[in-house]
Nucleic acid binder design. Structure first.
Lengths: 223, 223
DNA sequence: GCAAAATATGCCAGTCACTGGCACTATGCC
DNA sequence: GGCATAGTGCCAGTGACTGGCATATTTTGC
């Protein structure tokens, strides 16, 4: 009576999976909080796992590295973005398509995600090891996006670099849009939400054509 | 009598510096050779330093990580590229400028560099840890380039993202140009030299405008 | 409810990249 | 030759990460 697998049909996940999810979240949340309070390198994994009360071995069954647990929030976004690109059918300009996929992915995340993302990116900004990890996952994402897009075109991207270049441009827009979003977040006292993030990224997308033709003779303040 | 500091004026570097250079090169060359023969993870630093006959402590005075010594050839290029951008005065389109700087940097490297570069990139392609490191150094390079370019413009790039986006596009072109160069190198039996690398990268630069406007309705094989 | 199969977890011992501190040694300068 | 200034080696330690096996906890079939 105490623990029927589905007491009502309200719980879609098996009980075991729920517990795993809870452990996973607990690890990521606790890690992020500790890293923010005391600094990434000042917190050892031993301290983390003893706080969450799991063994070291178990930690590595959930996350494959210390960096990964710190950047869990970003990986949620990357996964959502890549999934969105894989799911949607592309019509029209590639860059506009990718911008839409990104916006959908951000909107598909839980409401508390924004704060976690802001926190982990802030941490990464002052932690070289995390910056390197971030660069790695971004490159990974780029690969996943190209592979997903490639299925919609008949030529493969090894022959024609334009698809890969377009994916890279989109990623650059995401990168700098996010950067500006975080910067704005530091200056204004307002917390900044998912929609302002999407807006910043959209703005960076819009700046792409101007970047392509940017010259030294007409400096960039002609906007 | 056996070792006067400057027997003739033919040695521009102090004897001590020459020895340091020699150790540095020896470490990088030996490391690359061992990694290629037996795989990156199968070679421990202990084996490397005992082969080169320096202590572990000394190794870390030359290279700050195992990844760095493996990718030494690439770092030479990145340093040369960043230096070139910092040195040259920019005129005209930013992207054309960056393409020229890259070409100059490649031409400024020693003749044996090409083979080492090919080798270390090939190794990185099949070694996840090195791919991550590579992503990190690339992001670092991007930052250096933006900082150098920023001095030539009066606006800083935080206000206007176009400069950063342009630097990113240039880097994407370098990335995929290099990728195609390596691929061509596997297929053709000819070794591939600095000029073919520059040509591939230039080709990728030329593809940038087409990537910007790439659409799903007119597939990429319309070239 | 209960055994059996499947899965998750914990413990232990080990490897390896990387670091700080100090003594030692070789080079450059006079 | 002698002194200051490096570069180097040794040692002991930390901390991330892994393999193997025993243990606990669900789930499944009855």
């Amino acid at each position: 009576m105490t623990g029927h697998p589905n007491e009502s049909e309200g719980s879609p996940l098996p009980l075991r999976e729920r517990k795993k999810l809870r452990t996973r979240r607990s690890l990521a949340d606790t890690a992020l909080r500790m890293f923010l309070e005391r600094g990434y390198h000042e917190v050892t994994l031993e301290e983390l796992v003893s706080t969450v009360e799991v063994s070291m071995r178990t930690f590595f069954r959930y996350y494959s590295s210390k960096e990964e647990v710190a950047m869990a929030a970003e990986n949620e976004l990357w996964d959502g973005y890549a999934d969105e690109v894989a799911r949607r059918q592309i019509t029209g300009p590639v860059l506009a398509h990718l911008r839409e996929c990104y916006a959908s992915a951000v909107r598909g995340l839980p409401t508390d995600w924004t704060q976690r993302y802001l926190a982990c990116r802030g941490l990464a900004a002052r932690t070289p090891a995390l910056r390197v990890y971030h660069a790695g996952t971004t490159q990974d994402l780029q690969l996943r996006i190209v592979e997903a897009l490639e299925k919609e075109f008949d030529t493969d991207s090894r022959e024609d670099v334009r698809l890969r270049l377009a994916a890279d441009m989109a990623l650059a827009a995401v990168r700098y849009g996010t950067k500006n979003w975080m910067r704005a977040n530091r200056h204004r006292s307002r917390p900044g939400n998912a929609e302002t993030l999407i807006a910043e990224v959209a703005q960076a997308f819009d700046a792409l054509p101007g970047a392509l033709t940017l010259t030294a003779d007409t400096p960039p303040d002609t906007a």
